[in-house]
């Protein structure tokens, strides 16, 4: 009974008399915070970024310093033991975070920017421009890209930045198509027509009115892109085509664990980098899931 009464009382309040209308951003963060795994994922991701930035202060040893203890088991000096040439595993793990974060976010920043601009342009120009751009994306998406990446990396030389560049080169088409699709829908909206009738210029319409409305799927896609790029980098480094030793990367640390004897007798060599890859990718994907729910306009 009291619930009914309060409902009636609540209904009598005119929406206009409510104070401070809730902003879109606040609504989204409220929805995101409800997603527990996403919040945990975000915490892990932020921690990884923190570790990457402050690696020199956090690492107990130099990641390149070779000591006399080869493949030593974890001890009070070397918390996660040492590798086959006597370098501290924990320190290498911490420095490898830098590689992962750089590749993950660098690749995504690069291809999301490029893909978004291409997608916007393609959709807004329409006609033959759109046709040609979309066929180019088709070609890129049809490539067996792991093979091409291996070839390109071997030609250009396997540095961190070639890796970022090459991964970005094969990732922009998906964003371009995504953006193009949203823009084609948004172009028909009444508020875009209203904007044109108010005398706004085309670049202003595209960047200030269409892009913010297309942002939600871009952000979600970019988040998953970070995880995918980190996975790809680890894979390539594992194959020896990515980040080259002595620079530490989770992928090339796993390369050391290719023999049965290491697998069985020296788990500190392969378990930590493996767990780091798993945790990182999982955390970022959780963040992506949370963002997708938070940014979903249907809620």
């Amino acid at each position: 009974m009291s619930a009914v009464q309060s409902k009636v009382a609540g209904g009598a309040v005119l929406p206009l008399q409510q104070d401070a209308p809730e902003g879109v951003f606040r609504q989204m963060s409220r929805r995101f915070l409800k997603h527990r795994l996403a919040v945990a994922g975000l915490a892990v991701t932020l921690m990884l970024i923190f570790i990457a930035v402050f690696a020199p202060w956090l690492a107990p040893h130099s990641p390149y310093e070779v000591t006399a203890e080869f493949s030593a088991a974890p001890s009070s000096v070397h918390w996660l033991g040492t590798d086959q040439v006597g370098r501290d595993v924990l320190s290498r793990l911490i420095y490898a975070t830098r590689v992962a974060v750089t590749v993950g976010f660098g690749t995504v920043a690069l291809y999301v920017t490029f893909g978004t601009i291409v997608g916007l342009w393609s959709a807004y120009a329409g006609g033959w421009v759109d046709m040609i751009v979309m066929r180019i994306t088709d070609v890129f998406m049809a490539f067996p890209y792991m093979m091409v990446i291996l070839v390109v990396v071997s030609v250009l030389g396997p540095t961190l930045w070639t890796l970022v560049l090459v991964l970005a080169l094969f990732s922009w088409p998906s964003i371009a198509r995504l953006v193009r699709g949203s823009v084609l829908t948004l172009k028909q909206m009444d508020y875009i027509k209203a904007g044109v009738s108010l005398g706004l210029s085309t670049p202003r319409i595209v960047f200030r009115h269409i892009l913010p409305n297309a942002l939600a799927p871009i952000i979600v896609n970019a988040t998953f892109g970070v995880a995918a790029a980190i996975m790809a980098e680890s894979g390539l480094s594992f194959l020896g085509m990515g980040v080259q030793p002595p620079t530490a990367s989770w992928g090339n640390m796993l390369t050391d664990a290719q023999s049965i004897s290491v697998m069985t007798d020296q788990p500190w060599l392969w378990l930590p980098p493996g767990i780091m890859i798993l945790v990182t990718v999982l955390a970022i994907n959780f963040v992506g899931d949370g963002l997708r729910d938070a940014l979903d306009p249907k809620q």
Binding site: Y191, G199, L200, P212
Partner: peptide
């Protein structure tokens, strides 16, 4: 023409529900 649109000639549309940009 762009200076005239919204300046000397303004327009209001049929659908007020969708004529405002939802993100601003």
């Amino acid at each position: 023409l762009r200076l005239i649109r919204g300046g000397d000639i303004a327009m209001i549309f049929q659908e007020p529900m969708t004529s405002l940009n939802p993100v601003f």
